[in-house]
Design a protein around this nucleic acid. Structure first.
Length: 696
DNA sequence: TTCGGAGGTCTTTTT
DNA sequence: GACCTCCGAA
């Protein structure tokens, strides 16, 4: 059996992982150790070699993209159709289960799924009624914490959470957390339902186990309660989602939670050079909360990691651009990473100026674009007329002269009559008279589409008619022309067509292309994934979080300053700081050949304040990194300065050093202000901000 | 009553 | 720059 052709391209540990079928298995898979391969081969092995029916296999991935990739790979490997196989994210699988068992829940089958934006709107709406100093974002954070099983911070927070849940129920809507929570509740309250799924899923696989949260863990316990064949893959050193409730203890305590679990370590790395691995290993060894493992490779030693100091973000981007030009084509070998999305802008500007092709992944995802969200809000309202949040979003988009006052009056009437906003319109107009003709027209518009939906028209027909009726393209043109460059406006139009294309594809590929089924798929599909399949030769730019699972020849890790990376909000506790370190570890291990790290002395988001290099840079082993010449000079000078202990008093006539202007001499000193003669002229500087260093 | 412009504030990561 | 609030014009 171990000679099966499927197994010949696996190393001994990978093979063991693939062929250990019964009972709980934890695979600790370091970066680049072939964990995706193990997962796909295992599923293939189950089907092909052991004759397991695809519908008895469940595979949970972290993103929809990963799910699609896995499915494609298995199909290639086995040359079969994987229709019956359950592959998806926790959220997409839960939606399927909820919809199939909706009669047990206080929701209707056409429930809306609220994303973060919708959630904020709900919280805001509730806040209007109560006066509070809390911001919607903070409150939402509290709500999510409570849902994740944390103790509420106060009775008041708990009360607010209850109100929020009540509101969602009224709107026939669930947020992302509810999808998981309600599934869990369903399993706990109806044993038959639980047993049905626990019976069906004889073999359970979970990818990225280090980033599962408590609810997901509990769901897995329920699902594995019959057969106990649970196979999880993860890397505690790559756990980077605790802010969203991921609980690293799930992976750290796996053996305790699932007794007799088999642990398999994949430590051979097939991706990076020795130098890169060494940097990553030494860095991560500073963490205390880890299972501990050592990655090794047969590969070459490779180049050292380069560190470059830039004066500001502009120069940082210029440096990266020059380096990429120097390395030459193909550009697609290069990945640029940063900690926060806000850092993307400078790269965009500089690359545009130089004519370098690039793609920013995830900055503004397809389904988060305004024009797409507006259209989806129409579809959501048509699907679920109780969805007041979507109603409010589009009642005056495109503009139809329905402003805040009108809405307020309608809303008062709706509350008084205990109706939802849309259904309140006819009565309200009758009651208040012709003044509200515009509302009536809006009602007729939606009503028309409700009828189309009831006639079971397909989603393409509905969306197409909607875009035409709204004259949506003209609206987009009118709104943005003159405001934005032409390509950007055309981009918006293209987005609309892309959504239409998606609907068309759905109609062709699905046996029942109803609005309901389309929205089910769309709601949990938050990436731009399939929208951008074109293979072009361009640089990839994204956050480190987005880079998980990817690999590139050259990786630029930018913005390595204290306060940016590690982020300033994560400096106070060891727990948070360790997560930032794992994040940096993820960044480094994306690289196959080269790692280039940059940091800036100044950044416009924190203007006037000079930044210091990230503390993580000091944790990298000295023998595998080199500072480029400019950086080295700056660092030497700073070191010298530190040795001399705190800044010496500066006087007229002193020689000084400035990070951008270089060496100079103080001509005039007046309190905090100094005039300094540099090689390229006289500058007036503030001692507080300029960070002048006395040299000589 | 609606709507657009001006001016102020804040900015982590995402299924 | 995204988002909010405030204010004056239509």
């Amino acid at each position: 059996m171990t000679n099966h052709p499927l197994l010949k391209d696996l190393n001994p540990q990978q093979r063991e992982a693939v062929t250990t079928i019964n009972g709980p298995v934890l695979v600790i898979a370091g970066a680049g150790s072939g964990k995706t391969r193990v997962l796909t081969y295992r599923v293939a092995y189950l089907i092909k070699e052991l004759g397991v029916a695809p519908e008895n296999i469940l595979a949970v991935t972290f993103t929809n993209k990963a799910a699609n990739e896995m499915r494609t790979r298995i199909e290639k490997l086995l040359n079969i159709n994987t229709k019956g196989l359950f592959i998806g994210t926790f959220h997409s699988i839960c939606v399927r289960i909820l919809r199939a068992n909706i009669e047990y829940l206080p929701y209707e089958k056409n429930f809306s799924i609220f994303d973060r934006d919708d959630q904020i709107r709900v919280v805001k709406k509730l806040l209007e009624e109560i006066k509070s100093r809390e911001t919607p974002k903070r409150l939402l954070h509290h709500i999510q914490k409570i849902k994740a099983g944390h103790e509420p911070e106060s009775e008041w927070h708990y009360e607010f959470y209850k109100k929020y849940q009540q509101k969602l129920l009224e709107l026939n809507a669930m947020d992302f957390d509810d999808l998981l929570l309600n599934t869990k509740k369903l399993f706990e309250e109806y044993e038959d339902v639980k047993n049905f799924y626990a019976e069906q899923f004889k073999f359970i696989h979970v990818d990225e186990y280090q980033d599962t949260n408590r609810i997901q863990y509990e769901l897995l316990r329920h699902l594995s309660s019959k057969h106990g064949n649970i196979f999880v893959v993860g890397d505690d050193d790559q756990s980077i989602y605790s802010f969203r409730g991921a609980d690293i203890r799930n992976i750290l305590h796996f053996e305790r939670d699932f007794p007799d679990a088999k642990i398999i370590r994949l430590e051979q790395n097939y991706r990076s050079t020795k130098n890169i691995l060494k940097a990553a290993s030494v860095l991560i060894s500073h963490n205390t909360m880890r299972k501990g493992k050592t990655l090794w490779t047969d590969g070459p030693e490779g180049e050292k990691l380069i560190v470059h100091e830039a004066f500001n973000e502009k120069e940082e981007a210029e440096f990266v651009a020059s380096k990429i030009e120097e390395l030459g084509r193909p550009f697609s070998r290069n990945l640029i990473l940063y900690r926060t999305n806000a850092q993307s802008r400078t790269f965009e500007e500089v690359f545009n100026k130089r004519g370098l092709p690039y793609i920013i992944v995830g900055a503004l995802k397809f389904f988060e674009r305004k024009e797409i969200k507006d259209l989806l809000a129409y579809l959501k309202l048509i699907l679920n007329p109780k969805d007041d949040i979507s109603f409010l979003r589009i009642v005056n988009t495109p503009h139809r002269g329905i402003g805040a006052k009108t809405i307020k009056h309608l809303s008062d009437y709706a509350i008084q009559e205990n109706l939802h906003l849309l259904e309140a319109i006819p009565g309200f107009v009758e009651f208040k008279g012709m003044k509200y003709e515009k509302l009536r027209r809006f009602y007729n518009l939606i009503d028309h589409f409700l009828k189309l939906k009831e006639k079971k028209e397909d989603v393409f027909t509905i969306l197409h008619a909607l875009i035409n009726t709204l004259e949506f393209e003209e609206y987009i043109r009118k709104t943005y022309e003159g405001q934005e460059p032409r390509e950007k406006v055309e981009g918006r139009i293209e987005n609309i067509n892309a959504l239409l294309g998606l609907a068309q594809e759905f109609v062709i590929s699905q046996p029942q292309p109803t609005l309901e089924n389309f929205m089910e798929q769309i709601a949990v599909q938050t990436e731009q994934d399939d929208m951008d399949i074109e293979q072009k030769d361009r640089i990839t730019i994204m956050t480190v979080h987005n880079a998980k699972g990817l690999e590139f020849e050259n990786v630029f890790i930018t913005g390595m300053e204290d306060g940016v990376f590690p982020h300033k909000s994560a400096l106070s506790t060891t727990y948070e700081l360790e997560e930032e370190r794992r994040l940096f570890h993820v960044a480094i291990t994306r690289a196959k050949k080269r790692v280039i790290i940059t940091y800036a002395k100044e950044r416009s988001i924190r203007f006037g304040e000079f930044l210091s290099p990230s503390r993580f840079l000091d944790e990298l082993p000295e023998d595998v990194i080199i500072f480029d010449s400019v950086t080295k000079r700056h660092r030497d000078i700073q070191k010298e300065e530190q040795e001399k202990r705190q800044q010496t008093e500066l006087h007229r006539g002193d020689y000084v050093y400035h990070p951008m202007f270089g060496r100079g001499r103080i001509l005039v000193k007046n309190g905090d202000k100094v005039k300094v003669l540099f090689t390229d002229g006289i500058k007036t500087l503030s001692l507080k901000f300029a960070n002048l260093i006395k040299t000589r």
